[in-house]
Amino acid sequence: MYEEPYRWVEAVGNRRQYLDDQFKQGSPVVGVTYESGILLMTMSKGTPKVYEIYDRLALGGMGHPADLEKLRFSLLEMAHVEGFNRSPSDVTGSRLIKYGVAPVIKQAFEEVFKAPFIVKILLAELGQKSGRDSLLTINYDGTFEEKGSYAVLGASSAVEQEMVAYLRLQSMVSLEQAIDTAVCAWAVGNRAQYRALEEAGEHREGNTDPDQPSTDSDALYAHLQECLAEKVIECAVLDRCQQGPSKYRAIGTDELRRLLPKVMSTSST
């Protein structure tokens, strides 16, 4: 029944709608660069969403955990085989994305008889010098974008735009600043998603001021506190100053408590 071109276009359109629905309640992912590296941040329930891929590559994802695992494994395999056969410096984020996973995701998306990947990916790549860092995002349909100093994943492009608009105004030099900015940007995104859900009539309880999209930090912290009741903050950095070839480091609870803004750290235990 999909043989006719018109049907196919319609089927792909339906797919887009289905996938957009799947992400509505997902947790946004924020990637920001700071002085000595890149920070990836999200909030998760149970399954982690931030991973190490290679010496200078880290992954943040949104979507179905099984799909994310599948893509994570193919990224890991490609990166390690390439790093072994050639050299670790030949393992670059843009090659992995452009020739590795993006075509696979696109194909799965367009083959309407098969299941698509319910996943959005953010791949952070630490450059040799600051200013050479890059953040790559892939959408569920295989479109990818490369960004310089920050990138986000959110339920819809409207949500992402709101987060980016917030990030544009911030300056991030130290890790503390980066974490502060990232959690706030996450809150901006998460709040926007709640709002979108409400507008669609699927009311969720326990949200404050959905109509007022203020980026006042107190309001954002309050929103975060609420979310902390059922989720945990997950942070990892690619740290240029770290000894050895592997630059990835997950930020543990104690370190996070020290780095979070004072208002937050009291109750994030």
Binding site: P48, Y51, E52, D55, H80, G83
Partner: peptide, 16 residues
Amino acid sequence: ARILEHSFKYYRRTQL
């Protein structure tokens, strides 16, 4: 040494 280095890294990153 090269195989071992990559094997240990790969194990750590895949198996967490």
